[in-house]
Design a protein around this nucleic acid. Structure first.
Lengths: 334, 334
DNA sequence: CTGAAAGCGCTTACAG
DNA sequence: CTGAAAGCGCTTACAG
């Protein structure tokens, strides 16, 4: 039942100086085998864990990485968070989670506090377009090089921040082309367009596919809606109430697609016979809807791996932009 | 373009001592209005934010609260995390997230590190039964009173830890009684039983309902399965393959229920005509399945509020146990 | 009400 | 390879 085993206790027990304890424990090269063994034994014996506040103060850097996610209740962010936490854990880093929830002020506050928290790094995973304010702060922080900043899902390449994004435009272009090929024209787009970085890209894929097939865009079939279930559901109801005809829907997220499916089912429309539907994200439940949802996959584990690498050797981080390809996952809905 | 504005810079700019800056900024009572105004002005001018590492070291306590969740990919944990993060933010606290993922070792490691992190508090939200090892560590830490520990979803009352739980046993008893009343016997139970604190309670509600109606338990209708979609899906497939007859399913989570529904739909069974089904948790998607899922609600926001209160006045925390009642949400599936 | 000074627990030049 | 000493940026008794 020790009380406050600090580095001094370990030093005393091992009969060495606190400097040596520090070096032995932190893997400093110039430490004799004998010294290392004695220190390790003493540390283990006392159940010593270095005080991270003290380490952080001295080193000018904590071991916590701030992860700013757009919306933890969305499946893709939950999966990403899980994988990133696991990856950080293997690096001995802790995850400070902030849910942005589409609030620019929140992001601003967090960025302001990042200095005082002595963050080890910041990962920003969001789909919303950021405000100019925040973009300016981010690019300044990136230039200062105090700690690595990484973007996921949106490109902050213009701010000098390494970014990992999906080929959303190409992915949607592929699936919409598939829909056109199998259903003809009358393909609706459902999803946030303005204000969303990824939304803009996805919608551009839709436009490109229509253009490639010589189809004119019908604005009544473009439903700009937020990312969650209700938005998908309500958009479809509204379209149906308006008497609009459509043979397929490309949704900007699986949640939107699933919400849309609920509305279609409720109106007695058959999927995919009457209306085919494609999502994006491959959230866990998309494989268990009725019918199962055709969608574009994600790669949270791969992203977590890339993040971990860049967190380790960040001094040499080029402001690269890595584009991941989304696998097209064909299931029953389209 | 300041470079390293610390408390000394602020003191210089305000023409006072660093001690006064500290007091003025931390709301110490014995500070003159004049002093406070000058310090605040200087601090704002320099964009000063106190170094949390230094504060933490000096105060012996950080501003980060560790939240240990069972599985962030499950909707109920994602919602809880979101609400708790928001509540902590209003208290000026940050959220350190750890995903337990049903690993006892992980919990053990985190608890071991909690001292070195100088955590402001620990919130453990999980359904798994904890190992004796971990229970012992938890009760020791609770006794030490270095920081508040709170349990959500499982009772650690026996370890002297204030706990917030749902009345799962009563809730399931109510819904299963409803199922028996409307469908007769042949009600299956689907969900983790052994190894899960909440699972055990839920199953006990099932047993109680059957007993109250004089129905003998049919072990073939008790499907012990993990909490996610696949488990629910596969359990139903197995039961159907085995030729088992059942008129309704009480699932231990919405994910299980939704997975089960997928299997029933795939086999052409109608819900609720052939098989009625009830979940637990009221995850967002449960309102958008086809048919929509009857379930038991949760109260993440209320829980976050209770947590925030107890984090603030924890010195007076009695090792209470707060039981929240789950609202029965009737939708189309039962 | 305010300031000088000690100290929280580490790490890291600096000597040796 | 090892140790003595300074110092990271705050807070808090202690005097006044």
């Amino acid at each position: 039942m020790r009380k406050k085993s600090g580095i001094l206790e370990v030093a005393r027990q091992a009969g060495v100086s606190s400097a040596s304890v520090s070096r032995a424990l932190s893997g400093h090269p110039a430490v004799s085998e004998n010294m290392k063994a004695r220190v390790l034994a003493a540390a283990a014996d006392l159940g010593f864990h270095p005080n991270q506040m003290a380490q952080g103060l001295r080193r000018g850097r904590s071991t916590t990485v701030g992860l700013l996610v757009g919306d933890i209740e969305q499946g893709v962010y939950a999966s990403l968070t899980k994988e990133i936490q696991a990856a950080l854990e293997t690096l001995g880093l802790d995850l400070l989670l902030y849910n942005l929830g589409h609030s620019h002020d929140r992001l601003k506050n967090i960025l302001a506090r990042s200095d005082s928290l002595q963050l080890h790094g910041i990962i920003i995973a969001a789909s919303d377009t950021l405000s100019n304010d925040n973009l300016a702060v981010l690019s300044q922080k990136a230039a200062e090089q105090h700690f690595p900043i990484l973007a996921i899902g949106l490109s902050l390449h213009g701010q000098g921040i390494p970014s990992i994004v999906y080929d959303d435009s190409e992915a949607v272009m592929r699936s919409v082309s598939h829909l056109i090929a199998t259903r003809g024209p009358g393909i609706a787009y459902l999803g946030r367009i303005g204000g969303s970085a990824s939304g803009t890209k996805r919608f551009s894929g839709y436009k490109a596919a229509l253009a490639a097939h010589g189809i004119q865009i019908d604005q009544r079939l473009v439903w700009d809606a937020a990312f969650r279930y209700r938005a998908g559901h309500d958009s479809v109801e509204r379209a149906l109430d308006a008497g609009l005809a459509f043979r397929a829907i490309q949704a900007g997220s699986d949640e939107l697609a699933l919400g849309a499916m609920a509305a279609l089912n409720a109106r007695g429309l058959r999927i995919p016979e009457d209306v085919a539907i494609v999502g994006i994200g491959n959230i866990e439940s998309s494989a268990y809807s009725s019918p199962s949802l055709t969608t574009h996959g994600a790669a949270p584990e791969a992203i977590a791996g890339l993040v971990a690498e860049r967190l380790q050797k960040w001094q040499s981080n080029a402001p690269e932009i890595i584009t991941l390809s989304r696998p097209f996952i064909r299931r029953a809905s389209a």
